[in-house]
Design a protein around this nucleic acid. Structure first.
Lengths: 155, 155
DNA sequence: TCCATTTCCTAGTAAATCACTTGGTAATTA
DNA sequence: TAATTACCAAGTGATTTACTAGGAAATGGA
């Protein structure tokens, strides 16, 4: 899993699309304006998203982008994987004998953790995020935060 | 949260240190050999880790690095934050009026998700990873994987 | 005391990535 | 026909990545 700023832009843009795409397509110009991301950079990101069928484009006046499937069927992991092409980290893909014992043990641990992070993000959908926020704003503005204290250093 | 390859190197190196540092310090030369990371790059990473007191260096022959605290007190988030300096993503730090409604709503959603990812990684310690693997190898080699199926695309 | 070992420190670098600009073409609507 | 929008390709300055080079400071053993 690779969570770069590029992935953040994509997630942010997809969130904007999910929120504003209820009635009719959303133009990249609108998302660009809303989120402060350059139009051409959005075009690049959406080219990748379209390849993975996460969005669907409609050309011409009144056109724009729709979600490619329902917000509940699009996970955060889907979005990030679409724009941040997956790179295999450990050179030994489990197969090659990578200098044996200690090294591959660490690689296994890392791979497990990596899978866990992926699954965590795979289990959060765009729909989840939108609903979660709607519930929140019903209650109050921004007081409650489910995310409590980590262990110590939060900066 | 920013999970780059740099963070991966740091986590991998710290895992190696946790595994091999039971009796005596571990040299960067060993970690470099084990994990296939250049010595000088490790030095840079460990400079950052030392600043956050996640490791403790001992100079001279027989020297090397110890964990700065127990493996249970070091979270994956700690490690990643030490080497991948935190960057504020949304320009409006919640305070500035960032063109109002739709934009800040998306930002709030993103910030919540971001916190959630951080807390997820903050709740996994080096000790967890090591123990998890010991249990696994007791059972069998590599057959079971707790991380089951995500939704669809795993590549 | 001298030497080997190791951390610690600074500077530089090729390659990749990031976020963006420029300059288009193709499809669609009015 | 003209405006609007997605789509496409090439290039660019700034930053990051992973690394090399060349040391200095501390420590242990001879």
């Amino acid at each position: 899993m690779r969570l770069s700023t590029k992935g953040r832009y994509a997630v942010t843009a997809m969130l904007d699309l999910a929120l504003n795409g209820k009635n009719g397509p959303v133009t990249l110009a609108e998302i660009s304006e809303n989120q402060g991301i350059s139009l051409s950079y959005l075009e690049q990101l959406f080219a990748a998203l379209r390849n993975k069928e996460l969005v669907r484009g409609v050309r011409g006046p009144g056109g724009g982008y729709y979600l490619g499937k329902s917000a509940d069927e699009i996970s955060i992991a889907n979005i990030i994987c679409a724009v941040d092409e997956w790179v295999e980290f450990t050179r030994c893909g489990g197969r090659q004998n990578c200098s044996g014992g200690a090294r591959c043990l660490t690689h296994t641990l890392w791979d497990d953790l990596s899978s866990e992070i992926f699954n965590f993000l795979a289990n959060i959908s765009l729909g989840d995020l939108v609903r979660r926020n709607l519930n929140k704003t019903e209650d109050e503005e921004s007081s409650l935060s489910v995310v409590a204290n980590a262990d110590s250093q939060a900066a």
